[in-house]
Amino acid sequence: MKRRGLLIFLLLIFSIFISLFEGSVRISLGEIMTGSPVFWKIRLPRIINAFMVGASLSLSGSVLQALFRNPLAEPYLLGVSAGAAVGVSISILLKLAWSIELCSFLGSMFSLILVYKIAVRNGFLPTEDLLLAGVAINALLSALLGFLMYMVGRELHGLLFWMWGSFGTSSWGNVIRGFPIFLFTFFLLVRHADDLNIMLWGDEHALQMGVDVRRVKKSLLISSSLITAISVASSGIIGFVGLVTPHIVRIMLGPDHKVLLPFSVLLGGGILVLADALSRSLVSPAEVPVGLITALGGAPFFIYLLRKWRKSDA
């Protein structure tokens, strides 16, 4: 168990290490020491941002899977990320630059509640209904997003950025605005770890076991929307990290949220830092959107999970 936890740590350190030096500009250790501006102004905030987003999306995925009692829940597949992106584009359209994170949060919260309302049947969320509701909301919001992008006059390239995510514009500004929210939400969620374990019994039995279900649910919904929102506001829509990470941690370290949440942060952060390093070195000096890389890795895993779960349903 301890050794497997260590493995996740090592992956994170390996990703950061690769990421520090790789990219359209190779940086040497000497240059970092002598204060290379490419490193300090561009690469370092980019790595921190990628870590924060990977960690946030994985946390959000872990929480949504427990909250919906559904192993296939995650912010991208449920359309929560698309909701956040619509929020962001509305704030750009209205030229409310100060409110990007806020609008992103309202958008993600709105789509999360909408998906829930569409999919819920007598207090249960059947997998098929949840995924179909996610597909529908995603289609609607993505179209809306494209429409808004044309209205604000962004080129196709800008749309690509939002639809597939990128850390190409990461700055210290993103880190300074996002990191405190990420940290706050992380500690809040860790405090809810026991509640999340019990919530896996469903609302009714969780209540019988002593969980204040309404209050906890509200807190979890707001938290997962919030961390999805800051992720999307800083780097667009990045799929599948939130789905894959919690499953890998569960396989390695078990399903207890006291372990799952912190290690999802480490692994999810590591995965996205690595994916970002790939995104800027695969076709260097150009960049591939990082969401393409996570989708290429994550979608097959999604199919595998879907088949596994359908088998156990039958």
Partner: peptide, 11 residues
């Protein structure tokens, strides 16, 4: 309870 179900492999 009479019927409950649970997801994820807790021991």
């Amino acid at each position: 309870p009479q019927e409950v179900n649970f997801i994820f492999p807790f021991s």
